[in-house]
Simulated assay, not measured.
Amino acid sequence: MNAIIKRLRIRRTYFFAMLAMLMIGLVMTACNREPLDIKRDFPFEVSVMPVPKEITKGETVEIRCKILRKGNYEGTKYNIRYFQFDGQGVLRCGDAPPYLPNDLYPLPGEVFRLYYTSGSVVSQSFDIWVGDNFGNEKQVNFQFSGKNTEG
């Protein structure tokens, strides 16, 4: 009788040892060693309130802009650059110094105001590019006709 009990204990020990090894094997193979793919790169649009079509030399126009994100990632940072290809003028954001063409500037937030001051009496055109730190970029074009101030 003692021999039978001894055999059952040995078999139970082997059974639990095999079960433990099986569980460890399942756990080890179930873990994915590749890093998780966290989506951080979300497209966006730039919404602009209507602006006047005509402007006189020295006049400043407020351009209200808003970034409309398709997703939300807290680490997204936005920047702006511009290039004026017709006429002369100065673009700035809020009370910041005037922007230099083709230089990148950080945006203060997703809602911002640009101020364009005309420097000529002829038609003026410029583009702004709003981009994020993931390489997404949107272009917005502005065109102003010279307004005749003589009556």
Rank of each mutant, 00 (worst) to 15 (best):
V140N: 10
N148G: 13
I10V: 14
G89P: 08
S145D: 11
M21E: 07
Y105Q: 01
V27E: 02
L36W: 04
G58K: 09
F83S: 10
Q84L: 07
Y105T: 00
I55F: 05
T13W: 07
A30V: 05
S118E: 01
M21F: 03
K53D: 07
F16H: 07
S145G: 13
L68S: 11
G25W: 03
D86V: 06
I67Q: 01
G119A: 10
F134P: 02
R113K: 15
E45Y: 04
R9S: 09
D95K: 12
I5L: 14
F112Q: 02
P101Y: 01
Y14A: 14
F142S: 10
Q143M: 12
Q143N: 12
Q88D: 07
G75D: 08
S47K: 00
Y116N: 04
P52N: 03
R64D: 05
W129C: 08
Q124S: 15
L36Q: 14
L19R: 08
G94T: 10
D132R: 06
E59H: 11
V61Q: 04
A96R: 06
L26G: 14
P101V: 06
P35F: 03
G146N: 11
L19S: 15
Y78S: 05
G94A: 06
D95R: 04
M49A: 11
I10P: 01
D95H: 02
F142R: 13
D132C: 04
M49L: 11
L26F: 11
F42N: 07
L36P: 00
Y115K: 14
I24A: 15
L36A: 12
G58M: 05
Q88C: 05
P108Q: 09
I4D: 11
V46P: 05
C65W: 01
R9L: 14
V121N: 15
R69K: 15
M1A: 11
D37I: 12
G119M: 05
R33T: 09
V130K: 00
K53E: 13
D37L: 13
L100N: 07
R12I: 03
L107G: 12
G135D: 10
P101C: 08
P101R: 07
G71V: 04
E74P: 01
P108N: 14
R12Q: 09
M23E: 05
E137V: 14
N32P: 01
N133I: 04
E74V: 12
F44G: 00
Q139E: 06
Y78E: 08
M18V: 15
R69A: 09
R81L: 04
R9D: 13
Q139D: 08
Y116H: 13
I5S: 15
M1H: 14
T13S: 15
Y105C: 02
P50S: 10
N32V: 06
E54W: 04
P35E: 13
D41F: 01
K138A: 08
A96G: 04
R33V: 12
P106G: 10
N2C: 03
Q139A: 08
R81C: 02
S123Q: 09
Q84F: 00
K53R: 10
